[in-house]
Amino acid sequence: MIVGDRKPLEEILNSIKDYKKIMLMGCGGCVTVCFSGGAKAVGLLASQIKMARKKQGRDIEIIECTPERQCEYEFIDALKKDIESVEAVLSIACGVGVQTMNERHPRTITIPGLNTKFMGYPVEHGFWEERCAGCGDCVLEWTGGICPIARCAKKLLNGPCGGSSDGKCEVDKDTDCVWQLIYDRLKSLNKLDNLTVVREAKDWRTSTNAGQRKIKFEEAML
């Protein structure tokens, strides 16, 4: 899932300081599951904003809503009337949701209230870790299902570097060295041969370097 982290309240208050009526829009997808942008987070943030603005003597009206997904037209279009009734929308969906809103409803500015962090999953309740960098050319087949692009600070394909120590990464002692994990996994699978091959320079064209990426699924097109 896409994991996000709500922006600090101060920053949010500053970004909406000019408005008296806003919509606070969450998303029922990934950010609901990671507790940062679902209906509960919307309710909490709305009260925080109202309280802060009340203290400043500048009340604010907030319409709260959490569409099933902010990144699809059908769910946000249902809210069109409300969207057009406010001065701005504060979104605590991921960056995709914010942009879907801005493109679909260009007459209303949608401002981000959340920092989109990474693609990952909860390794324990309330704790998420990055797992995929979306490089566009998956290497998990030979790495024992563990990604060095997303999890190595140097994106090494022929790791580990000399900073791997006691299973930890030199960049952060609380982070596992992904190459130690890959080594251990392949050893347990009896596939250490995968690591004796010199892996050639990666073709990054499938990643973010070639500009915006697109996928067309002909059968689904109308």
Partner: peptide, 14 residues
């Protein structure tokens, strides 16, 4: 921002 377009083994090969 770091680069690491290629790693040290790939640099040697290059």
């Amino acid at each position: 921002n770091n680069v690491f377009d290629i790693d040290s083994v790939q640099l040697i090969a290059m």
